[in-house]
Structures are given as C-alpha cells and as structure tokens.
C-alpha cells in the first residue's frame, strides 16, 4: 500500500470517527428507507442497538411519530432534491418533545438522488422559552396600560415604555372602553414614561384623542419632556388641537378646572 492510499484511509477513519462522535442524532437511509448509517447518538435517541436497526427500514424499527409518509423529512428532501427543515412535536409519556429535523438528499456522482440523511435537534427547551416569552409579553401588554379613575368622570392613563403598534392598539381600546364604562368626561394620557415619540406614536395618540372625542370625552396629554416636545416640533407634528400640559400635576389641576372643581386647603 502506498502512502497516498494510507493517508486516504486515515482521513476516512477520521471522518467516520467524527460522524460517530457528533452528539446529535444523525441517520442516513437509501431510497427505500433502508438504514445505511446511524451514529451512537442516533441509537441512543431512538433507544435501539445499532445491530437491531442497520439495514432495516427506518419506519419499521424507529417508530417515530413523525414517520407517517407525508411528514417524513427525508422523503420531502428526496422528493424535492433540496434541504428540508421542519419542526415536529413528538408526544411522549410525560411531555411533548419538540424537535427540529433537518434532512438533505444524498446524491451519487452523477447527481441522482440515492437516499437521504437527517439530523435531529431537540428544541424542547427553546420552544418552552419562546412560549414563556410570549406569555410574558402578553402579561406586560396587559400590565402596561392601566386605567385609573382619579375622580368621578376623570380617567388617568399613565403610559410607560416604548409604544409599538400592538401597545398603541391596546391603549386605544383600554381608553375607549374605560370612557364608556365610567361615563368619563375627561381622560388624561400621561407620557412621562415614554422615551421616544415619533410620527407613528404621535399618529396613534391623535387617533386615540379623536376616538375619545367621538365618545364625548376630552383628552389632556401630559408629561412631555423638553426633549420630546422639541423633537415633535422639529418633526412638524401638530398637536395644537389637543390640550397638552407639561406635567401631570398641571394636567390634573386643568382637569379639575374643566370639571368646575378646585382643590382647597382645609384646617388640619
């Protein structure tokens, strides 16, 4: 045996060793779904011994729930000739396991598809985290727009944080529903906690104010920081039709003024 051949064999051994030690399940089948290769991680995943499965049809021995013909990732990859990646939910005894299966077609030297290879990534944790995140986002959305009744017919909505389309929608809904529920004449939208007011946010606020007006309620905007007011003027946004106040305090006393009430000191 000459040296060139020898090194070739070493390279093949190395490749094989690498494939064997990849910690994610890898499995390869031929066109008839006969298992050509499965690495130790794959055996462990499917809870099978190598000798029980090699050379057998994958759907007969592996009993994976995603093995129905239409959903098989390898079949899709072989049919299309392209890489296929899909998300599968596999019901187990206690919980559902979420996996991502990536499959590629195997081709011979002439480019004919002769089989398929897939690897399985357990994404259960990721899916769980994503779900948690979604729940939290919803919680924050609901928490972030409280409506406080500060006097008969006077509502206060303190807005805190960045306003995106979803939150703006929520704010408008909360505002209008509370106006109707409380038969409110005045609503104070406090923007102290909003760091950036751009044209999109301004548009949402103007919409909210106009909708409230239709329900017979007047809206006072309070809590503009010097930076925000300067930016709004530079942007060319016209809020002159809307009653605005610098601080929440002046906004509240203005509201009382409109209601024909005033705060007086009394003897302690």
């Amino acid at each position: 045996m000459n040296t060139a051949n020898k090194s070739n064999i070493e390279v093949r051994d190395l490749e094989h060793a690498l494939l064997e030690s990849i910690p994610i399940p890898v499995i390869a089948v031929d066109k008839d779904f006969k298992i050509l290769f499965i690495n130790p991680a794959g055996c462990e995943w499917h809870k099978k011994e190598l000798k029980e499965v090699i050379g057998k049809k994958c759907y007969e021995v592996l009993e994976a729930k995603c093995c129905s013909v239409s959903k098989c990732g390898i079949k899709r990859a072989m049919d299309s000739g392209k890489k296929y990646a899909g998300h599968y939910e596999i019901p187990c005894q206690r919980e559902t396991i979420n996996v991502e299966i990536t499959a590629v077609p195997l081709k011979d030297e002439d480019g004919n598809i002769v089989g398929g290879l897939e690897y399985i990534t357990d994404i259960t944790n990721r899916v769980k985290l994503e779900n948690d995140l979604r729940v939290q986002t919803r919680t924050i959305l609901e928490l972030a727009t409280p409506v406080i009744k500060i006097w008969d017919g006077v509502l206060l909505l303190p807005l805190v944080g960045a306003i995106d389309t979803a939150r703006a929608q929520q704010i408008i809904e909360n505002l209008l529903n509370s106006i109707v529920e409380n038969e409110a004449e005045l609503a104070i939208l406090d923007l102290t906690g909003v760091p950036v007011v751009d044209t999109a946010v301004a548009r949402h606020i103007i919409k909210a104010v106009n909708a409230a007006k239709m329900l017979g309620a007047k809206t006072i905007l309070t809590g503009f920081s010097p930076e925000v007011s300067q930016t709004l003027v530079t942007l060319g946004i016209d809020l002159s039709n809307i009653t605005t106040c610098g601080s929440l305090k002046t906004g509240i006393s203005k509201a009382f003024g409109i209601m024909g009430k005033k705060v007086v000191s009394c003897e302690r």
Binding site: P195, V196, V197, D198, T199, A200, S225, P226, E227, V228, Q230, T231, T234, L235
Partner: peptide, 13 residues
Amino acid sequence: SADQTRMATAISE
C-alpha cells in the same frame, strides 16, 4: 439627552 432623543426618533422614523 436632547441629541440622543433626536437621533433615536430619526432612527425610529
């Protein structure tokens, strides 16, 4: 903070 707000608003737009 005025400059920060100006840039943040422009990026936002």
